Amino acid sequence: MEHLTTLPLSALPQVRVLGRHADRQPQTLFWTGSGIELQFTGSELWVEWNAGYDIMEPWVSVELDGAWVARFAVNPGRSRSCIFRGMAPGRPKHVRILKDAQAMYDDPAHFLQIEGLAFAEGEFLPLDPPRHRIEFVGDSITSGEGAIGTQGEQDWTGVLFSARNNYARLTADALGAEYRVVSQSGWGIVAGFDNDPRHALPAYYTRVCGVARGDQNRQRGAQEPYDFAAWQPDAVVIHLGTNDDHAFANPPWVDPVTGQASQLHSLPDGTFDPKDAARVEQGVRDFLALVRRHNPQAVLVWCYGMMGCGLLPVIRAGLDRYRQETGDGRVQMLVLPALTPETTGALNHPGLAAHQAAARVLTGCLKTWLEPDSPA
């Protein structure tokens, strides 16, 4: 092994930090798709990690010159991982490292930090600016749950989450975009799949990573207000509603402290209770207004349909109400291709083929907004 120089990311301005993050060191990777991107001319590169968890270990994927070359779980505590070594010095190597694991609301001990990069003699080169910036807000689909692994696999575990086999990554790459993800499995617009009203993602949207609980994550900046002005997206893709749909068919959630029950109700004929459907419609309208307030120039695309379309009329009604009340013409509803037996992955969730199909449709939609003069 050659003599290595070790520097924190704060000393390497050419390295692009991916995903929502707080302005502090060491750099914490909170969300799915968080990570780093860089170009380096040296022969050897290592990442120095600090990680921890009680329930779900943090998995990462490594790309080298566009190829997916490694995937592994980062060990708890401090460790070092080789990204490459023995490569020709002087030639630029493009590296992107993505966190596959989502932020973990139910595991306050879950965290992943990059403490520094260790490298043999070489130069970190400036990256080309991205053509676009896109933010994705969603649930387990956007977290890449089941996007890697075999059909029929039912163990809910970190190895079955993928940032790379993910429509968000595929769409962003097709458009030459830098992207950020805000997503949480099982969560919805006004409630989670289990009717838990605490699992409504819009309530956490304005913080760096509001779903990362506990004092340690607070100290890492998770609960700080997110600096929207520092990273303005050209598009925000919202992909919520699947879990609210499931909640209508599930029993009530009971608050363990107060004993109060909460539920989105279905009527005896199986249709949605109009009062609860109106709650979801209002939730759609209010979340669009919140996203627009913080992203004034972005096109807003609400996606739905990969795992059922039961709430489509309700979501569309909320979107139409928002558009009528505000006059906002840069909002669109987009139905994505439905999951099929052939495109199902692990955990009864979309597999790679389903994510690829969704990305093709979404890429085409965003191109009409972001690149109207480019060929279809």
Rank of each mutant, 00 (worst) to 15 (best):
P130M: 14
S162H: 06
R180D: 03
T171D: 12
A168Q: 05
T171S: 13
G158K: 01
H132I: 12
A177R: 13
L160M: 06
D173C: 12
R133L: 14
I141G: 09
D155N: 06
Y167T: 05
P130L: 14
R131L: 15
L170D: 12
S140R: 05
I148Q: 07
R164Q: 09
R164T: 10
A191L: 03
R169Y: 12
V182P: 00
T171I: 11
R164F: 11
W156R: 06
E135G: 09
G188N: 06
P129A: 14
W156C: 02
G188Q: 08
S140P: 07
N165C: 09
Q184E: 11
V190A: 09
D155Q: 08
V190W: 07
S185P: 03
I148D: 01
S143N: 11
S185K: 04
A177M: 13
A174C: 13
I134P: 13
T157D: 09
G138T: 08
F161R: 02
Y179T: 06
G188V: 08
V181R: 04
A168P: 07
N165E: 10
G192T: 01
P129D: 14
G176Y: 15
H132P: 14
I141D: 10
E135I: 03
Q154A: 12
V182R: 01
R131F: 14
W156N: 05
S185E: 04
Y167C: 09
D155R: 10
G144I: 04
V159M: 07
T142D: 03
S185Q: 02
W187E: 03
W187S: 04
N165G: 00
G146P: 05
G138E: 03
W187M: 05
A172I: 10
R164V: 10
V182M: 11
V190H: 06
D155Y: 05
L170Q: 12
I141F: 11
R133H: 14
L160K: 04
E153L: 01
L160Y: 05
E135L: 06
G146V: 03
S185A: 11
A177L: 13
Q151V: 01
Q184T: 06
E135W: 07
Y179K: 07
D173A: 15
I134G: 12
G158D: 00
